[in-house]
Structures are given as C-alpha cells and as structure tokens.
Design a protein around this nucleic acid. Sequence first.
DNA 1: ACTGAAAGACACAGACT
DNA 2: AGTCTGTGTCTTTCAGT
Lengths: 167, 167
Amino acid sequence: MKTEAEQPAYAAGSLPQLDEKDLAILRLLQEDAKITVREIATRVHLSTTPVHERIKRMEEEGVIRQYVALVDHTKVGKGLMVICYVSLKEHSKQAGARFIRAVRGLDEVVECYNISGEFDFMLKVVAANMDAYYDFHVNKLSQTENMGHLQSVFVMGIIKQTHRLVF
Amino acid sequence: MKTEAEQPAYAAGSLPQLDEKDLAILRLLQEDAKITVREIATRVHLSTTPVHERIKRMEEEGVIRQYVALVDHTKVGKGLMVICYVSLKEHSKQAGARFIRAVRGLDEVVECYNISGEFDFMLKVVAANMDAYYDFHVNKLSQTENMGHLQSVFVMGIIKQTHRLVF
DNA sequence: ACTGAAAGACACAGACT
DNA sequence: AGTCTGTGTCTTTCAGT
C-alpha cells in the first residue's frame, strides 16, 4: 500500500481488472473499514478465503489506498476550513517542484490540487481559528518562495463530505 | 457515530474534553484504522481496557466520525476530478435547502461547502471522464431548480491529499 | 481510572475440491 | 477459483485494585 509521500501527482497507473465481486467488497469497505471479512463474505455470497485474497490483492494494487479513522475537525479544535488559491510568479518545473515540496510540508494544508484557470493551485486548509489561519497565511504560505497571488475563500458550512465513490 | 445524512451543516457541538492520551490514540487511528488496540496501548503506555473505552467514548461523541477504506478513484474508473462553483438565483432559506437536498443526492458530488465570495457553493465532483462530467453538468447539476451561475475548474494534478489533522 | 486475565470472535493459512 | 477446517491473535468483558 502506498504511503502519502509516495503518492504520484495523478495516479496514471494501469487500471486493475476489478470484477463485480471486487467492487462490491470495495463498496462495503469504503463505508466501514471495520466490517469483518465474514460479514463481507456473507453479503457478496462468497466464503472468507476468496474475500481475504481479493482484499489483499486490492491493497497491493493500490486500489485500497489506506484504512483511516475520520476525525471530526471541529471536535479537535480545528474549527476553520479555508480554500486557498495560489498562483506562482515563475512557472518553471523547478519552481513548481519547490512549491509542491513546501506545501506537502505544511500540516495545515490537507489537500492541494493543480488546477485549470487563472490560479495554479487550490489548497484546502484546516486551522484552529482565524488567528491561526492568519498566522499560516502571512507567516507560512506567503513566505513560500516564488509565491504570486494568494486568495482565500472561507468555508462557512459543510453541506456534504463523503469519501464514498459510487461505482 | 453519526451517519453522513445526519451530519450538521457545520458541527457546532460542544468540544469534548480530550486529554493527551485521547489525542495520541486519535493520531494513531487516523493514520491506520487497522492498528490493534494492543499496539495502541503499548504506544500510549496504557493497557487495552482504557484504550478500548476511550475509543468507544470518542466514537459515541462523534470525535471519530467513521472508519473507512480510502479507494483510489483513478483505479475504479473515476479519473476526473472537478471543482464546481455554484451561485443560486434566489437566496431564501427554502431555496437553499432545496439545493442542498439535491446536491446530497448526487453521487458524483463528494464534497459541498457553503463559501464566502461571489459564489454560494463549492462542489468537488468525481466522474469517470469528460463525457460523464458533461452529462452530470448539463443533465443533473444545471437542471437543479434555482440554479444561477455555474463554473467548473478542472483538477489537473493531485499534489497532496490527506485526512490527517495535526493536533 | 486503571491492570490483568479470560472468553469468544476473528483473521489468516493450509489441505482439499 | 472456490469451500472447509484449524490455529494463533485479536477484541471485548469482567473481577479486582
């Protein structure tokens, strides 16, 4: 299973062959990682061994990236979520790579995407409160070399937040 | 543990009292949901019983929202990620509520936030390819009543994607 | 609140179809 | 590629401190 750091920019790997049973197993696991292999076996009409083997195979293929506990950010004192847009001054490969390295090292940044449009990157940032975000913005993100424009959009409400892909 | 549907707009609940041991347990679980209670116990210098009780308590308090397997979207044929901005025509409470209900019912929408700025909502959409996204855009999202402006920003690369909150 | 032990359930591997 | 069976390890509970 790949660790976070090894994650490629956009996983372009070959599509593994997944049959309907594999997909059914994935659907169950992405809803509840604690479901037992027995329970899965019953639901997909198989016994434990093939289910176990299929899961192991999908872990190795990277179809299953990780098993995680999702923590409510508001309940661990991280009440603020901000979407942050960044454009770089210089767009050379090296300059981009340096920015990427910097962003990966910032704990406040939970997501970062290369996007189309007037900005180069979109970041999702989680912070304790406005003071903490201001500190991040001024002292960390703005200080990144090659930083061009920076724009913050504040998340005022979470309407939907899921990791369940429907396939 | 709260289900997705019950999730409030912005969890404004009281902050549960979490001590350093609780946080240490959370840090371990959000990296690996499959870690054994024994292993946690060893790492936080406790025995299995209190660790077990603390985890159960944090599940009940909603600190731990869910245990999930993270699936690589590119490997289940969902290669395209799009950030979608929406502004509504009418901003009454009812009109907003109807939009929210519609968005929660769209499987392609994995995240939706109420945001500050010129648009009302930001959506993260996952689709198989450009054709599938076009279909979603034209036949599903645009058809939502009260839809004002719609703007799509395409994700060209994933630089960082984590669920690990640093606390 | 915690420790230690102990029961029952589970993951995982092996022999077999 | 699958079922069945067994072993060691895990979760989970309970009596005791």
